[in-house]
Design a binder for these strands. Structure first.
Lengths: 151, 151
DNA sequence: TGTAGATAGTTAACTAAGTTAAGCGTACGC
DNA sequence: GCGTACGCTTAACTTAGTTAACTATCTACA
């Protein structure tokens, strides 16, 4: 039990379809408004990450992709690029008040759906899930920071 | 603790970047050969799912998208559409011998990378992760089958 | 001081993966 | 045997990603 290899196998089996499911949930929740990658970018800005390249690194995408998605968020009036006086190479990304309230609403809806599903699990399963997510977080964070240091 | 709402929040925070990380891992493992969605389709066929619409449902994508990706797998010589005599509306998808051996090789490599990362976790964390993945599986499967029955 | 190199971001050209809508052929219930 | 549901494909489109080449800025250092 708990053989790294078995876990790796399970991870590859479970995570992608779960992700597909979350994507579908989010899509139906947010209708035409916002795609999942756009939502994630807004989530990062909301949490105080305000430099495009940092967010790009965190999401594992290129700066070019980031730049384009920020364009579309700016076009929708959800995000603004504020010039940064200290270092004029980068902008300070901020949510507009419209972006902020939309983000909060979208997050709440998406969570409500997920919450309903999660409520169907047994208590013990919910505990397992919670602990498992923490382990996954650590796994991802260590792997990720290692990547960054190497590349 | 273990409030469905907290878990939902955590899920939305952790799964997408984890997915991004797995995608990056897979990409570097499989080089130019195969994309992750293509790999997942092959995995389904490998496990005996051989009807395009079933796989499309499982992945949460449209039949049209499925059809195109199967085209590309067929073009690479990894998959074949065998006519089905019982019901000529659908094909019987099978891996070619080249597809089969490529799939096994790719899966082994991808797992080896993940395994290495997972080995860095404590034993207790690995156990948590394993249990959590099982809970996630159940969550996904029940939600998914409910979706299918409703939609 | 001035120049070399690193960093932040954009643009262009491309590909993959997804969507919806329309259509074709087959199977099946009544 | 006819309408309807099903399996699949095609066409036209969008989004998200890539790499490569570019601009502009900052920083370190001879």
């Amino acid at each position: 039990m708990s053989e790294p290899n078995d876990i790796a196998k399970k991870l590859m089996e479970i995570i992608p379809p779960s992700m597909g499911w979350i994507r579908t949930e989010m899509r139906s929740t947010m209708k035409e408004e916002l795609t999942l990658p756009q939502f994630r970018i807004m989530a990062q800005i909301f949490r105080g990450k305000n430099q495009a390249c940092d967010i790009a690194k965190h999401q594992g995408i290129s700066q070019a992709a980031m730049s384009k998605m920020i364009d579309s968020l700016v076009a929708r009036g959800f995000v603004e690029r504020e010039p940064n006086e200290n270092d004029r190479r980068h902008f300070h990304l901020v949510l507009t008040s419209e972006g902020d309230s939309f983000f909060k609403k979208a997050r709440k809806n998406a969570q409500a759906n997920l919450k309903e599903q999660i409520s169907c699990l047994e208590l013990s399963e919910r505990e397992d899930l919670e602990k498992g997510l923490r382990a996954l977080e650590k796994l991802f964070l260590t792997a990720h920071s290692r990547d960054n240091s190497v590349r």
